[in-house]
Nucleic acid binder design. Structure first.
Lengths: 337, 337
DNA sequence: AGACCATCTGCAAACGTGTTCAGAATAACT
DNA sequence: AGTTATTCTGAACACGTTTGCAGATGGTCT
C-alpha cells in the first residue's frame, strides 16, 4: 500500500510537503503541489484515514445501533442518517442488537474501541439501565424514539400524544361514537402516550372513554388480529379502531374481514407509522405517517452540530401527519347513536 | 482519553508489558498481568482500534454498499451480514448509493480511505463499468445478486433460472395451460434468467411458449398493475401469472380484483422474493422465497474466508424455495383446455 | 551591501499500539 | 562456583499522518 512517504520520495520532497499539498494547504507552492498531486494520482494513492485519525483524534465516523435493520421502519431512519452523514463526509458504523441488551452493550463497546465521534441509538426498548454505560463514553449520544427520552441528554422522537389525538379526532369527526384502541401490551411509553392522546379526544368530544373498547396486541399482525377479535366479540363492538401501529392494523383488517364485516363500511381502521405496506393493504390503510426519513436526517444533523461544538435543542419532537386512505368512513347508518 | 501509556505509568511497567497483558500474552507474568488489568479497568481503558490498526495493518471492518437500506429486501441481507460479522468481531461500514454510480464510487473510495479489510456490494444495476475501480482496490470484493456476476471475482446470488422453473412448474402442475409472465422492463439479467426458466418449463410441459402472455412492469406495484391489465385485456387472458417479483405481484392482485375477477378462482398469481408483505396480501401470496438472510450470512462468511487466506468457491448460487400460500389453485373449470 | 520580509520546505515530534530483540533476573543443572 | 536454561521485562522501532517550528531561498528596500 503506497503511503505519503513513497510519493515524497518520488517527488523529491519531504512527506510533510506531500501531506500539505494533498490537503491544498496554501503553504505549498502551487507548482510543486501540482507535481505531487500528479504523482499521487499515478501511484493510486489514497490517504489513510487511520493514520490521520491517530493524530487528529477524530475518526469522522458515527456509530448507529438499531434493533433490526430488516425493519423497514428503521431502514428509513438509517437512510436519512446516511444521507446527511455522507454530505458531511462522515461514515456510518452499523450494529443491530435485536432488542438484546447484551448485543447492544457489545455494539456500544465496539464503537468505543473504534473511537467513533458520536453515537445514534434507535432501540425503543432499552431502558435507563444502560444510561451509565452510555454516559461513560466520552462522545455525544443521541437517542431516536427512545423509551425514556427524558433521561438522556439528547433525543429525537415523534410526538406520540399528538399522533393519538390526530387519529382519534379524525374518527370522531367522521361521526364515530364507539372508537376502540388496539394498544401494545408491552407497556411501551409510546403506547401510553398514544393512548393518552386518544383518550383526551374522547373526553373533549364528549364521547367519553369506554374501557371495554381497549385491547392489546403485540405490535405484530397476529397480535392485532386476536386483539381485534376480542373487540368484535363484544355485545356492541366498536365502529372504529385506532391501532398502535400499522402492523396491528393489518391484523385488525384481517380479523374484521374474517368476521364477515367490511372496512370501512362496518368498521373504520387507523394505523400508525405509514409503512410502505400501508398503501397496499386492501383497502389502503388510513394512518399517521411517522416522518422516518426526516427523523433520521434530523438526528444526524443534531449530532453533527454537537460534534462541531454547537448546543442544539436537547429534545426534539416531530409531529406525524394523518394520511387518509380508504379504511376510514362514517359509521354504518344504523349505529350513529 | 486514557491510553496504554497512562496505565503503564500507573502500574510501574512499560507500555509494552501493558499491551501484552491486555492481550493475554503468555509472555507476561500472571500476577503483574492481573494488576495491569485491574488498573486498566479502574481507569476505564478501552483499546484504540485506530492505533492498533495502524500497526497490524488490519481494521477488522468490512464495507457494505447497498442501493437503499430502506428496502426490506436488502435489510434482510445486511442483517445476515451483520450477524456473522459480529460473531467474528468485525464491524460494518454501511453506505447506500441509491443506484447512483457517483454515490457508489464515492462510497467505495471512502471505504478505501478507511482501509476496510473487504467489501460487499449489493446493487444489482451496477454494470461492468466499475469493475476497474473495484479491482484497483487491494481488498477482496464480493458481489451479492449482481447484474453481471461472471465478470467479478466473487459473488453470491440466487439461482434465477431455477426460480423461474419452480414457479412455472408449480402452475403447470396445477393444470394451467395459459401461464403469463409479468417481467421487468429494464432488461435486468435476473429478469432474463427467470424468464428463461419459465419458458423452459412451458416447453417441457408441452404447453408451448405464447409470446402474447408476456408483459413487462417496472418492478413496482404500479408497473405490475398496468402490465396485468394488458394481459387481462387479451381475448383469451391467462389463467395464471408468474411475476418478476412480489411488488409486481401485488399490483397484479389489485388489477385482477379491479377487473372483477378473483384470485385464485379466476387467476393464479406467483410472486418472487417472499417479502414480509407477501404473507399479508389478500389473499396471502404464493411466492418463491429468496434466502435473503442466508445470502447475507454466506456472503460475509465467504468474505471472511477470503480474508483469512482461504480460497472459497468464486461464485455461489442459492436456490429459492416455493412458498405455497393462497394465490394459486387449479384453473377455473371452464378453461382447462 | 546589509537588513528585512515573504514564501516556501524540511525536521521532528506526536498520536496509540504491536512486536522484535536484547538483556535482566532467577532457577536448574554439572 | 560456574554454566546453562528459563522466564519475564523494557528499549526501540514501526505503522501513516498532521503540524509547530526553524531554517532556507530569493526578493525588495534602505
Amino acid at each position: 500500500m503506497v503511503s505519503i512517504k513513497d510519493i515524497a520520495r518520488a517527488a523529491h520532497v519531504s512527506h510533510s510537503t506531500v501531506s500539505r499539498a494533498l490537503r491544498n494547504s496554501p503553504l505549498v507552492n502551487s507548482e510543486t503541489s501540482a507535481i505531487i498531486r500528479k504523482i499521487a494520482d499515478e501511484q493510486g494513492y489514497t490517504v489513510s484515514a487511520v493514520g490521520r485519525s491517530l493524530v487528529t483524534r477524530r475518526t469522522n465516523t458515527i456509530g448507529v445501533v438499531v434493533t433490526s435493520i430488516a425493519n423497514p421502519f428503521v431502514g428509513e431512519i438509517v437512510n436519512g442518517i446516511e444521507e446527511v452523514a455522507l454530505a458531511h463526509d462522515y461514515s456510518l458504523f452499523l450494529a443491530t442488537c435485536h432488542a438484546d441488551p447484551v448485543r447492544e452493550v457489545r455494539a456500544v463497546r465496539s464503537f468505543q474501541e473504534r473511537r467513533v465521534d458520536g453515537i445514534l441509538v434507535n432501540s425503543s426498548r432499552v431502558g435507563a439501565l444502560y444510561l451509565p454505560l452510555l454516559e461513560e463514553m466520552r462522545v455525544p449520544i443521541l437517542l431516536i424514539n427512545n423509551q425514556h427520552p427524558g433521561e438522556f441528554v439528547h433525543s429525537v422522537s415523534i410526538d406520540n400524544l399528538n399522533a393519538g389525538r390526530v387519529a382519534a379526532r379524525h374518527l370522531a369527526e367522521l361521526g364515530h361514537k364507539r372508537i376502540g384502541y388496539l394498544g401494545n401490551r408491552f407497556g411501551l411509553q409510546a403506547d401510553m402516550e398514544r393512548f393518552s392522546g386518544y383518550r383526551q379526544i374522547l373526553e373533549e368530544a364528549d364521547i367519553g372513554f369506554q374501557p371495554e373498547l381497549v385491547a392489546h396486541g403485540d405490535g405484530r399482525p397476529e397480535g392485532g388480529m386476536s386483539a381485534m377479535e376480542r373487540l368484535l366479540a363484544l355485545p356492541e363492538p366498536p365502529t372504529a379502531v385506532f391501532c398502535y401501529n400499522d402492523m396491528e392494523a393489518i391484523g385488525a383488517l384481517r380479523a374484521i374481514r374474517e368476521h364477515g364485516l367490511t372496512v370501512p363500511g362496518d368498521v373504520s381502521v387507523v394505523g400508525l407509522d405509514d409503512l410502505f405496506l400501508a398503501s397496499y393493504t386492501d383497502p389502503p390503510l388510513t394512518t399517521i405517517q411517522q416522518p422516518k426519513h426526516q427523523m433520521g436526517r434530523l438526528a444526524a444533523e443534531i449530532l453533527l452540530q454537537l460534534l462541531s461544538g454547537e448546543k442544539p435543542d436537547s429534545h426534539v419532537t416531530l409531529v406525524g401527519k394523518l394520511i387518509v386512505r380508504q379504511t376510514t368512513a362514517p359509521p354504518p347508518a344504523g349505529r350513529r347513536t
